[in-house]
């Protein structure tokens, strides 16, 4: 009997409301579309293997054994960062539990003394105003997750989740980039830039060194060189852009909205600094690259309990009638 129930156990990832893929019984998670990330991954693997196997081996005779070894280390680091970005929970905020929805509903009951009668409910307030380090910030209510989003969080429309420190949804890595995987993403950008420069540099060196006629070797080298040359522009641009963002302590999401609404300073009409910046550019860089590792807030490997099912039902009902919460 006990064994039987153990088999029947349902994990939370099986009823997870967002559009994510889970592998290995919820140990790994990623976004819905993995087409482009497979392309990114295989391009890196193919180029690096060709480089190490042919140019690397040739150059190890001509120049130094360090050329293929450093190449291999760079390649492994890049690949790890890519896999980490793709398969890490980006910092998804769990949706409201049944008791939290009940608590909010109670707050939304319109006071019968000033208006619409005793049974009237009003839609949840759209924003909650707070101050972060002295700068006024509006917390928006998320109608999908039934929570007030924390500062800097945003709802990813691809994955249908609220994500902490949401940067952007990157189709090239097939996942959102947020609080928990921004570090891996940034390191991926940097290492892939270095890798491109490395491969391009040594492909050119190789072509200069051979000069002669080993056509089949040359063809691969030229292929590698062209791929890394083409990738270089976008990748170096991306690294530069993210370094600039880290320098300012911003996210891509904030940068994009500033283009529309103006910066922190313009918002208040006086000079205010970014409330999320850690102070200096170096501190921002260290906080992103070597800061603490925040935990995953979604317990996808936990077993489904009655409260989870209740919450799921409440969310479903609320999606059907978005303004009738509580009725």
């Amino acid at each position: 009997m006990t064994r039987y129930t153990a088999v029947m156990v349902q994990r939370k990832w099986e009823i997870f409301p967002g559009r994510n893929r889970f592998c290995l019984n919820g140990r790994l998670m990623t976004g819905r579309d993995i087409g482009l990330v497979s392309f990114t991954g295989s391009l890196i693997v193919v180029c690096c293997c060709l480089f190490i196997a042919f140019d690397g081996v040739y150059l190890s005779h001509k120049l130094s054994i360090a050329v293929p070894i450093i190449g291999a280390i760079l390649f492994l680091f890049t690949l790890t960062c890519l896999l980490r970005t793709t398969f890490t929970d980006p910092g998804i905020i769990p949706r409201a539990t049944a008791s939290e929805i009940a608590y909010l509903e109670r707050m939304f009951i319109v006071d019968p003394t000033n208006g619409d009668g005793p049974t009237a409910y009003r839609p949840p307030p759209r924003v909650k105003e707070i101050t972060v380090n002295g700068v006024p910030v509006k917390l928006k209510y998320c109608y999908s997750c039934k929570i007030f989003r924390p500062p800097r969080a945003s709802h990813c429309s691809f994955c249908d989740n609220c994500v902490e420190n949401f940067d952007h949804h990157c189709p090239w890595v097939g996942n959102c980039v947020g609080k928990r995987n921004y570090r891996y993403f940034f390191h991926f950008c940097l290492s892939v830039s270095v890798l491109c420069i490395y491969i391009l540099g040594f492909s050119i060196t190789n072509l200069v060194l051979i000069q002669t006629v080993i056509i089949f070797l040359t063809r691969r080298t030229v292929f590698n060189g062209i791929v890394s040359f083409l990738a270089l522009w976008s990748v170096v641009g991306l690294s530069g852009f993210h370094s600039y963002l880290i320098y300012n302590g911003q996210t891509t999401n904030e940068q994009a909205s500033f283009c529309i609404k103006g910066s922190w300073a313009a918002r208040r009409g006086e000079a205010t600094s970014n409330p999320y910046s850690h102070g200096s550019a170096l501190e921002n860089f260290l906080a992103v690259s070597c800061g603490p590792f925040p935990p995953s807030l979604i317990d996808v490997r936990g077993t489904v309990g009655p409260e989870d099912e209740e919450a799921l039902a409440l969310h479903k009902r609320a999606t059907a009638m978005p303004y009738q919460v509580g009725l």
């Binding site: 492994l76 680091f77 790890t80 960062c81 980490r84 891996y184 390191h187 850690h278 501190e283 260290l286 906080a287 690259s289 070597c290 800061g291 603490p292 590792f293 925040p294 935990p295």
Partner: peptide, 29 residues
């Protein structure tokens, strides 16, 4: 969540091991 020397050191070490140390040890958090 403190951003101090210890946190940076741990972060650097895990980065240098290509984050494989995260598979073996529990994080400070």
């Amino acid at each position: 969540e403190a951003l101090n020397f210890r946190a940076y050191l741990l972060g650097c070490l895990s980065c240098l091991t290509a984050y494989s140390s995260l598979l073996c040890f529990r994080t400070h958090y």
